[in-house]
Amino acid sequence: MGNVSLPFYFNLTMFVNIGHYRFAAFTFCLLLYSFIVCANLLMILVISHYSALHQPMYLFIALLSVNSLYGSAGFFPRFLMDLLSDVHLISPLACFTQIYVIYTYGSNELTILSIMAYDRYVAVCHPLHYHRKMTSRAVVLLSVLAWIFPALNLTAVILMSSRLPLCGNEIQKVFCANWNVVKLSCVSTALNNVLGMLLTITTVFLPLFYVLYTYLWILIVCWKKSTKFKGKVLQSCLPHIVSFMIYSVAGFCDIALSRYNLEDINPFVAVILSLEFVVIPPVLNPLVYGLKLPDIRRHILALFFHKR
């Protein structure tokens, strides 16, 4: 195995499954990407423009939109180019860069949703201490940690993967994924698997259990309160719950697809499932928060109709 070296390109093989639909797929995805950019920029603009929305809950929503723009930029430009191309080759540097951007996007999404769950937990369960705990400094610190922690973890994982000697170059996806690259290794990947499992626990399962824990306490507190109080809590928490459920389902589909034998799945279904993780959350998050939270909805209308 001493003469095995990293191939000078990877081949994204799942584009073959799109076939004659690629021009229709390109048009649809271009419109989808345009909507993602416009909708998330609108959320950021509205929240930054109106001082009434300069509150932790809305600032975290803006952070979620920034992350959606970041993740989409790491996926859509390359994907749109590949849809119009007859060959789907990507250099190792571009491949690992895409892995880093998409994986940090996914990890950031979970950490931000966890911070938003903490914000709702303090607001509902400890309302008298809310302004003392959720200060401007605390919001900035939590936001920075939400980005730095996944970035450091994923840098270590991807550096290890990039040093593996590979015996192939075919990636069964429409974008680069770390596990698909690791499977091409000519040597044992036990250390990569252990590190990957630790990363999954710290960036996926811990935030998942924390969100469930906070909402269990919110449910317990609401159980003893009036119907009016429950309605207010539901109004502020429902968009977050919906976003969390959407992301969890999309993330589960991506993880399951990477571990499953794609030859046993309908090719078109496999392509759709592989796109959920990077497409659905950035599309639905601005819709969920923009339509469900009356303060944001009112300020969006004010922005368009030039009203205060």
Rank of each mutant, 00 (worst) to 15 (best):
1 M>P: 01
1 M>A: 11
3 N>T: 11
4 V>K: 04
7 P>G: 03
8 F>R: 15
12 L>W: 07
14 M>W: 06
18 I>F: 02
20 H>C: 07
21 Y>Q: 07
32 L>A: 12
34 S>P: 02
34 S>D: 05
35 F>M: 06
37 V>I: 15
37 V>S: 07
38 C>S: 12
40 N>G: 08
41 L>G: 09
44 I>T: 01
48 S>T: 03
48 S>Q: 08
49 H>G: 07
51 S>K: 10
53 L>C: 06
53 L>Y: 04
55 Q>K: 15
58 Y>K: 00
58 Y>C: 03
60 F>I: 12
61 I>Q: 04
63 L>F: 03
66 V>H: 14
67 N>P: 04
67 N>T: 08
70 Y>V: 03
70 Y>L: 10
71 G>I: 04
73 A>W: 07
75 F>G: 02
77 P>C: 14
81 M>V: 11
90 I>N: 02
91 S>C: 04
92 P>S: 05
97 T>V: 11
115 I>S: 10
115 I>T: 11
117 A>G: 06
122 V>I: 13
123 A>W: 03
129 H>N: 08
132 R>K: 14
132 R>T: 08
137 R>M: 13
138 A>Q: 09
139 V>G: 10
140 V>K: 11
145 L>T: 08
147 W>T: 02
152 L>C: 10
154 L>M: 09
159 L>R: 10
163 R>K: 12
165 P>E: 01
171 I>G: 02
176 C>S: 08
177 A>T: 08
178 N>E: 07
185 S>R: 09
186 C>D: 09
186 C>W: 08
190 A>L: 12
193 N>C: 09
197 M>Q: 04
200 T>D: 10
203 T>S: 14
207 P>N: 01
210 Y>M: 06
217 W>I: 00
220 I>E: 11
222 C>V: 04
225 K>E: 15
230 K>H: 14
230 K>I: 12
234 L>F: 13
234 L>N: 05
234 L>G: 00
235 Q>T: 04
237 C>N: 13
237 C>E: 03
238 L>R: 02
239 P>Y: 05
245 M>K: 10
247 Y>S: 15
251 G>C: 06
252 F>M: 10
255 I>V: 12
263 E>N: 10
266 N>I: 03
266 N>F: 02
269 V>T: 11
269 V>P: 01
271 V>H: 01
274 S>G: 08
279 V>H: 01
282 P>M: 01
287 L>C: 06
287 L>E: 05
288 V>T: 06
290 G>Y: 05
292 K>P: 00
295 D>N: 09
303 L>Q: 05
304 F>M: 14
305 F>K: 15
306 H>W: 10
306 H>N: 13
306 H>R: 14
308 R>D: 14
